[in-house]
Design a protein around this nucleic acid. Structure first.
Length: 571
DNA sequence: GTGGTGAGC
DNA sequence: GGCTCACCAC
């Protein structure tokens, strides 16, 4: 057996077939997590043209919610008060998040002395926008075939399943794999018969700087690491954002790897390095175990060390934690995890929330904030429409908290009737209805926090809405990208002319003429300009119905749109 | 549908 | 600690 090691792989032809299918069962699969370094501070540094070497924090009320790495070297940490930050680092640059304010129709960056939690509501739009720009850059940088598996995990984290792409590269690079046609599924693959000296990564677990007899799982991660390095370079070149990345055989390890060293590093965990990596990791760092559940486990077994939890037999683990959770924990501390990368790059819900200090005591005060929530959500809905057809919310939820985050909560949710047009007035009326229901049920004042959420986005447009007007800008080449509406918005404002898609009166407010987007916001990104030109970078798909150029990743959505359009015409 | 948990900036 | 997001148990 040992003697054959250099000639025969440990993996079968079947394992290779699973790789091209991006199967969660492939031992060769390649998963990456990209995580921007202190995302909000980078957004602000770039927007303001400030050197990334200067200490900077993003401020929200009297605390900082993001701390860049130069500031961390002064001992500044997240959630620190502004006063304490200044005492630690007198030269700190503080940038407050933009805010909504009653009577104003849009969010804006405002000067700190005027910002008050009593009158303002934080707006995180610039970070969501930059998050989407990054995703678009990644989607158009990755090849369109095989199908892209890109998951937006949070505003600043992106999972990639690179398995199928890696498979393609592997076959081109190792023609020996082309000969497997004659093999049966259970036959072992030939050995790569190569060595790896450059890992395209800053840290590798499972080997020293070189590896003399890599097997195909090492090769696949190595190729994945090349792809990730290219993506990171592109993100920096085009957007000036640095990120850290982890590359491994599953999401759990990719995520952990990305946090191994920051900022601006990438880390690989090879299969044979899994044990070493995990036994140096604190148990509560594992995804899903940072909260109560992790505490329970630590209490039950009196240790936060994975190395000690590895001694716990499965039966004991399931006895202590229940079958489902017990088995799950038993697996993940061994690096066993097989969840799939969910190909989703859009949010599934939008929430607008406010904590009241002091608590509000009347329905009139609540109403005032509901209006701002509605403006906020409609503005964001409009942004989403600019790059996605799947934009009609069908559910609206109001949440009410007497105490803070951990106090009791009550919520009311309804399905928006199909006949309802989404307008500022209609959304507000529905939200107010929900508020009345909540208030009627039991004592609701004083109230610490309210939030309004829209969800259940559907591709089908509301009956009667002039959905075709969204697309007028798209027929205006040459300098518009298929998703350049955000920029268009600013261009239109510059020209003193409303964007075409706002002419859809059914989906904007007929009552209140001043929609958020009708006023230019005060923010601009210094890197602004046409986002990209798809036409020059890739072969666009030409729609047989309307001749429009469609990015491959948008084809299905576009076809859905035609269905919706036909339905709309039929009515 | 409702309430709750976990996560990240 | 505030503001989001996703997911799950019931």
């Amino acid at each position: 057996m040992e003697q054959n090691r250099d000639l025969t792989s440990r993996f079968t032809r079947y394992d290779l077939a699973l790789l091209v299918q991006s199967s969660v069962k492939s031992p060769l699969r390649v998963i990456a997590l990209l995580d921007y370094d202190s995302f909000y501070t980078q957004c602000e540094s770039v927007r303001l043209g400030i050197s990334p070497d200067l200490p900077l924090c993003v401020q929200q009320w009297d605390a900082v919610i993001a701390v860049n790495y130069p500031a961390r070297r002064h001992g500044v940490v997240r959630a620190m008060s502004v006063d304490e930050v200044r005492s630690k680092c007198p030269d700190i640059i503080l940038q407050h998040v933009p805010t909504w304010r009653e009577g104003s129709d849009t969010w804006a960056y405002r000067s700190v002395p005027t910002i008050m939690p009593g009158t303002d509501k934080a707006a995180l739009d610039p970070y969501r926008l930059e998050s989407r720009r990054g995703l678009q850059l990644i989607k158009r940088t990755l090849p369109r075939s095989p199908p892209q598996l890109v998951e937006k995990a949070s505003v600043d984290e992106i999972y990639l399943d690179l398995s199928a792409q890696v498979y393609d590269i592997m076959l081109r690079r190792y023609p020996v794999l082309m000969d497997v046609e004659s093999m049966t599924e259970n036959d072992f693959l030939p050995s790569p018969r190569t060595y790896i000296s450059n890992w395209n990564a800053d840290s590798v677990f499972g080997t020293e700087t070189e590896l003399n007899n890599p097997d195909w799982d090492d090769i696949s991660l190595h190729i994945g690491s090349e792809i990730v390095r290219d993506l990171r370079r592109k993100l920096y070149d085009e957007m000036k954002y640095t990120c850290s990345a982890g590359i491994a055989h599953n999401k759990l390890l990719a995520k952990l790897a990305s946090t191994y060293r920051k900022p601006n590093h990438q880390t690989i965990i090879l299969r044979r390095g899994t044990h070493e990596f995990l036994t140096t990791t604190k148990f509560t760092k594992l995804h899903g175990l940072g909260g109560d559940l992790g505490v329970q486990v630590v209490e039950k077994f009196q240790t936060n060390l994975i190395s000690e939890l590895l001694q716990v037999p499965l039966t004991e683990m399931t006895k202590a934690m229940g079958t489902t959770i017990g088995e799950w924990i038993f697996d993940i501390i061994r690096g066993e995890e097989h969840s799939k990368v969910n190909p989703r790059t859009h949010v599934q819900s939008m929430l607008s929330a406010k904590t009241f200090v002091p608590k509000i005591v009347s329905i009139d005060q609540a109403s005032k904030w509901l209006r701002i929530f509605v403006k906020d959500l409609l503005g964001r809905l409009e942004e989403l429409r600019s790059e996605n057809y799947q934009v009609c919310p069908t559910i609206i939820t109001l949440n009410h908290l007497i105490e803070g985050r951990f106090g009791p909560s009550r919520s009311k949710q309804i399905t928006i009737p199909r006949s309802t047009l989404i307008t500022e007035r209609s959304l507000f009326n529905i939200a107010h209805d929900l508020l009345n229901q909540i208030v009627a049920e039991e004592k609701s004042w004083p109230c610490r926090s309210l939030s309004l959420r829209i969800s259940g986005f559907q591709k089908v447009s509301q009956p009667g809405s002039l959905i075709s007007s969204y697309f007028t800008p798209k027929s205006n080449p040459p300098d518009r990208s298929s998703n350049g509406f955000i920029d268009d918005r600013h261009q239109f404002h510059a020209a003193g002319e409303p964007p075409a898609y706002q002419r859809d009166v059914h989906l904007s407010s007929s009552e209140n003429q001043a929609l958020p987007s009708e006023k230019p916001s005060e923010y601009t990104f210094s890197e602004e300009g046409p986002l990209h030109t798809l036409e020059s970078e890739s072969e666009p798909y030409s729609c047989p119905h309307c001749k429009m150029s469609i990015h491959a990743t948008e084809v299905l959505e576009h076809l859905d749109w035609h269905v919706a359009l036909d339905l709309s015409k039929a009515n």
